[in-house]
Structures are given as C-alpha cells and as structure tokens.
Simulated scan of single mutants.
Amino acid sequence: MNFLDLVKKRYSVRSYLPRAIEADKMNYIMECVRLAPSAVNYQPWHFSIVTDAEKLAALKSTYPREWIQTAPCIIVACTDHQEAWHRKMDGKDHADVDIAIAVEHLCLAAAEQGLGTCWVCNFDASRCKEVLSLPESWEPAVLIPIGYATEEAVPEKRRKTLNEIVF
C-alpha cells in the first residue's frame, strides 16, 4: 500500500472489538513511534500502554464518552516540556509539535497493521496523571484508544480542497 492509500485508510475509530492486540503488532507500532522525528532530536515523549482492566477502567473515566468503553487498550502519549527543545529566538516550546508527530506515526502504523485508533485530547489530564502516577514534569497530551474496529461505517473524510490550503 502506498502512503496516500494508508492515509486514506486511517480514520477515527469509535467502536472496538473485545480482542487483544498481538505483541508483535504493538512492538512494530511502538518502533514506528520511536523513530518519529522531533525538534533537535530531543524526543521529549513517554508512552504508557494500558491494558490492565482496573487501570484501563480508571483511565476511561477521564473521558466520559460511551464509545471509549469498547477500547481494549489505550496508549497515553505524554510529553515532558523540560526535555523539549525551545526555540532560542522566542522560547517556543516544541513538545506539543513533537508529540503530535509521534502520535500520528502511531496512528498510521496501527492502520497499516489493521488496527484502528482515535485521537482523544479532550480528557481530564489531571485525573489521567493521577491514574498513571506520572512524574510532575510529564503532561498526558493525548489518549489513543487502539484496537480492532468493529464493522462500523467508515465516515467520509471532509477536507478542504488543495486550493483552500495552499497559497
């Protein structure tokens, strides 16, 4: 499959089968994440792969939407602003850019492996940090439910045209 086909294949999955993800697939996905680029190669990220039933239930409570209950696994992408590169001219912190690149590597690698994902950014980050006992400097930035999608209808991707975004 070429890259454009992979990008077209990936969508936000909101219904998962109760099926565990094979270790070799998860290792492949996380290797793709590990190789993601970051500003000045600082790699200011940490990832928690949550499958333990008790911890998973607590984590799901940080995002009170019914559909997330079907996810057999959630990967929590954390960034450390202290580890991130800061642009010298204005001090801009690139941690959020770096974690976004890594998470998209994760989502595309998962799609390639036949798995579905969904970016979740609107969650209780303080509660998430507590559930995972994260260090003070780590910020949980994104929850990524991951698993095998049910046979749901694939939503149409509504995107702006090239003329609307290229100048």
Score class of each variant (00 low, 15 high):
C73Q: 04
S48W: 12
N122E: 07
A20C: 04
L162H: 06
D93A: 09
M1E: 10
I68M: 08
E151N: 15
I49L: 07
P155H: 11
A110P: 03
C73D: 00
I29H: 06
N41A: 12
L35P: 01
E130G: 03
E156L: 10
Y16P: 04
M30Q: 11
K88R: 12
L17A: 11
K92S: 05
C107T: 11
K160L: 14
A110S: 06
F167P: 00
D93Q: 08
G147T: 08
A109M: 09
P155T: 09
P145Y: 12
P64R: 15
N27T: 11
R127F: 14
E152S: 11
L6K: 00
G116I: 04
I21M: 12
M30C: 06
A95V: 12
A71W: 06
Y16A: 02
P18H: 05
R158D: 04
L143F: 13
K60P: 09
I74R: 03
I68K: 09
Q82D: 14
I49N: 01
W67A: 04
F123A: 05
Q43V: 08
R34I: 11
A71Q: 04
V154N: 05
E164T: 01
R10Y: 10
D5C: 07
A39P: 02
C32L: 10
A100L: 02
N41G: 07
I74L: 07
W138V: 07
R159P: 00
W45K: 05
K8G: 00
E130Y: 10
K160Q: 14
E54M: 06
V131L: 12
V76K: 00
A77P: 05
N122M: 09
Y11E: 06
A20L: 13
A110W: 00
A58Q: 15
V76Y: 04
E83F: 14
Q82C: 12
A109G: 07
C128G: 02
G147P: 02
E83L: 15
M30R: 03
I68Y: 10
P140I: 11
E31G: 02
E164Y: 07
V97R: 04
M26R: 02
D124S: 09
K8E: 14
E66R: 14
W85T: 07
V154M: 13
A71L: 13
W45E: 03
I21P: 00
H81K: 14
L17H: 01
K157M: 03
E31C: 01
P155K: 10
V97I: 14
N41D: 02
L17Q: 14
A111H: 10
K25E: 12
C128I: 11
A71P: 01
C32W: 02
R14Q: 13
V142P: 00
L134I: 08
G147K: 09
A23Y: 07
E54G: 15
A153Q: 15
D98Y: 06
A153G: 05
S15V: 03
L35Q: 09
K157I: 07
R87G: 01
A149P: 15
K55T: 13
V50K: 01
A111T: 09
R158Q: 15
R87H: 08
W119C: 01
M30H: 06
V166M: 14
W67P: 06
A149V: 04
A36F: 10
A141G: 03
Y63V: 06
R159W: 11
A141F: 13
Y148C: 05
S126C: 02
E31A: 13
N41T: 12
